[in-house]
Design a protein around this nucleic acid. Sequence first.
DNA 1: GATAGTTATCGTCATAACGACGACAAAGGA
DNA 2: TCCTTTGTCGTCGTTATGACGATAACTATC
Lengths: 239, 239
Amino acid sequence: MPGLPDAVVPVALAADLVVLTLVDGSLHVLAVRRAEAPFIGRWALPGGFVREGESAQRAAERELAEETGLGSRVHLEQLASYSDPARDPRGRVVSVAHLALVPADDAPPEAMRAGGDAAEVAWLPVTDDGSTAEPLAFDHARILRDGVERARAKLEYSALAAAFCEEEFTVGELRRVYDAVWGVRLDARNFHRKVTGARGFLDPVGTTTTRDGGRPAALFRRGPASTLNPPITRPPEPD
Amino acid sequence: MPGLPDAVVPVALAADLVVLTLVDGSLHVLAVRRAEAPFIGRWALPGGFVREGESAQRAAERELAEETGLGSRVHLEQLASYSDPARDPRGRVVSVAHLALVPADDAPPEAMRAGGDAAEVAWLPVTDDGSTAEPLAFDHARILRDGVERARAKLEYSALAAAFCEEEFTVGELRRVYDAVWGVRLDARNFHRKVTGARGFLDPVGTTTTRDGGRPAALFRRGPASTLNPPITRPPEPD
DNA sequence: GATAGTTATCGTCATAACGACGACAAAGGA
DNA sequence: TCCTTTGTCGTCGTTATGACGATAACTATC
């Protein structure tokens, strides 16, 4: 490390991804089955090492494109970094975790890019406590929990829920995002009043759709407002 | 990097700190004047390299103790990581920035630990747009802005404001934290009603104080509630 | 010791927002 | 045709909010 003090310990930098989506109306996370040691055969969050001249953000974008084939239409933000010296048995690996939200039923894992370093890819269901049925490699369970919690919190005061929807979506589709991510059932009528009444939150397209069955629903796009004031209140947990 | 792929590029890991406090009722950030190149003579956020066997969190705690002499009574949380390859001219240095909030007028910079690697330490005033009058080294202006924005956002829905106060504080002291961090003037009566009415937010001590002048004010401690529902709404910017 | 200044705290009132519903509309399927 | 599903508009009582008046209890000052 030229130019830096001698005592500086070199670390490897990884960019890992918590990619969330909705499958059949419930929250799922993208996972890859590890083909090498350590944790061989275990499910892990997709990710990889940051390359030379690359920021963690750009590495995350690259990994996301590699794993899902999705370029745009994806929300991507930095989540947190994990630097416990013992988190990777191979050595000092620091992970900059990112949170990605992709529209429902987009990018099925079957459509995986060939030639990737990951053998098997799947959407794993996320339980209410933000974990998966099967254990994850490394400290990825913790990272997933943090990612789910971040997504849950941001739904309250931001327009993030639309990231789970197509470009044009109905109020009901948006509400089902909240239902799935929060694990609740919001009242359709109050939700409708709330989101259509929030200025700048939804832009009416003018057309309708019947793709969800029932009466035709008006289509909307994300409005210019990124934050929602007052926020949508998450119902208190009944436990 | 034994056990890791050859292509993995080693980076140096730094833990930097956005330490905020209130000085004379206005927001200030802890800064050190750099004694070496690069950016020699410039103000910079305190921080240092993560040592062997140390997590970024622990490095931040260590740096915070070194710079301020404060151990507990400090709120410390991870803010974000900054990994632009060009952010440090010396080489690949990734900074895990942390946000620390210390009680008002605690830990004056004069009380700096001797023998530190930083020559001069000061509380710099933070402007409304989250910057300092003098430019900061590296990308620290960006980090500071993110830290201030995080603090502002968290005041809305969390009990974080109490981190700027002593163990026991009055409602007025708490309100002045909001005034300073948000750059507004909240109505004392509505604020009092709001925070004393929020269950679990404030624990009454039972005693009073006159240290702020005027009529004696009841003393409180932080209650068990860490989040505030409904949140304290930040008044809209008049711009 | 009266008085002004400061801060704390309680109350009022109109308005806005919310939660729980009822009611009806408009589609598809049985 | 009827039933089910989903969407949308209203109603009503409760709660929260913003703006502000009024009073209480201390300190500093004249």
